[in-house]
């Protein structure tokens, strides 16, 4: 049962149905990629799984290690081990990165307990070094005035510190130059292993050169229309999404 399982999910924003019967399972220890054209519902999927209040789930289920998380608040889902790396990470003026991370870690402690400051900084500096982040970063306000690359690096740092069971990386490659892309990918790869399942959402194949997925899913119009090995990404790159769209008449089993 160790998986993040999405079963026949239907999601609306207002009156508009964006996700239309999506089924997907990411076993722990694997990295899956979702590719799809703009407007196919990729980002909606990650926000809906995270519990964003603007997204209404009309039917279907999301199970984290066999337990439905749909009745949970976004913070409960996070504490259950779900992590979203945001496409557009938010700025939190006046709140330092160190304070924010500590608050996030403390929210995972049992009532009245807090993490030790010394252990925290030791761990934080270790993870920052891996991502080639400078020490002064800890006292800067969360994402405030950060470049696109710094923001994405920060997402991966938070992921490393919070050690989720399942992580969804939403367009982590957008806004990254090639150097930043390599650093961020190395950061993700360092976290790969038997204790985490990852879902990498991307529009371009480029990211998958660095974070090589075990399985590739293709998403069009709110559904998974094709599943395949990592080579499927290359095929998409070569032929474009139209070839999938053209082939949509064929029945697909997820």
């Amino acid at each position: 049962m160790s998986s993040l399982k999405i079963q026949d999910l239907h999601v609306r924003i207002g009156e508009k149905e964006i996700i239309r019967g999506l089924t997907l399972e990411i076993p722990k220890g694997e990295v899956h990629a979702i590719m799809g054209p703009n407007g196919s519902g990729k980002s909606t999927l990650s926000k809906a799984i995270g519990g964003h209040p603007d997204y209404t789930i009309t039917s279907g289920d999301v199970l984290l290690d066999g337990v439905s998380i749909l009745g949970m608040e976004p913070d409960e889902r996070a504490r259950q081990g779900l992590f979203l790396a945001f496409q557009y990470p938010m700025e939190i003026p006046g709140v330092s990165n160190a304070n924010f991370l500590r608050a996030a870690l403390n929210s995972r402690q049992s009532e009245g307990e807090e993490i030790e400051a010394v252990d925290f900084y030791e761990h934080l500096y270790e993870e920052m070094d891996k991502l080639e982040m400078r020490r002064e970063f800890t006292s800067r306000a969360v994402n405030e005035g950060f470049s696109g690359g710094e923001k994405k690096r920060n997402e991966i740092l938070q992921m490393a510190m919070l050690k989720p069971k399942y992580a969804i990386l939403d367009e982590t490659d957008s806004g990254l130059d090639i150097d930043a892309l390599k650093i961020v990918s190395a950061g993700v790869n360092a976290q790969r292993g038997p204790n985490i399942g990852c879902l990498v959402i991307t529009h371009y194949q480029r990211l998958l050169d660095y974070i090589v997925p075990d399985v590739v899913h293709v998403m069009v119009d709110g559904r998974i229309v094709r599943n395949g090995p990592k080579e499927l990404a290359l095929e998409l790159e070569e032929k474009g999404y139209d070839f999938i769209k053209d082939a949509l008449a064929e029945p697909v089993s997820a």
Binding site: G50, G51, H52, P53, E73, D75, A78, V95, F100, A141
Partner: peptide, 28 residues
């Protein structure tokens, strides 16, 4: 913004904790 609160909640903070941290940041 609701997006800022969602972001903070996604890291494990309750809505009240997220609000509180944001307000404390504002006056920090």
């Amino acid at each position: 913004s609701a997006e800022q609160i969602f972001y903070m909640q996604q890291r494990g903070l309750t809505e009240a904790q997220a609000m509180s941290l944001s307000v404390n940041g504002f006056v920090n």
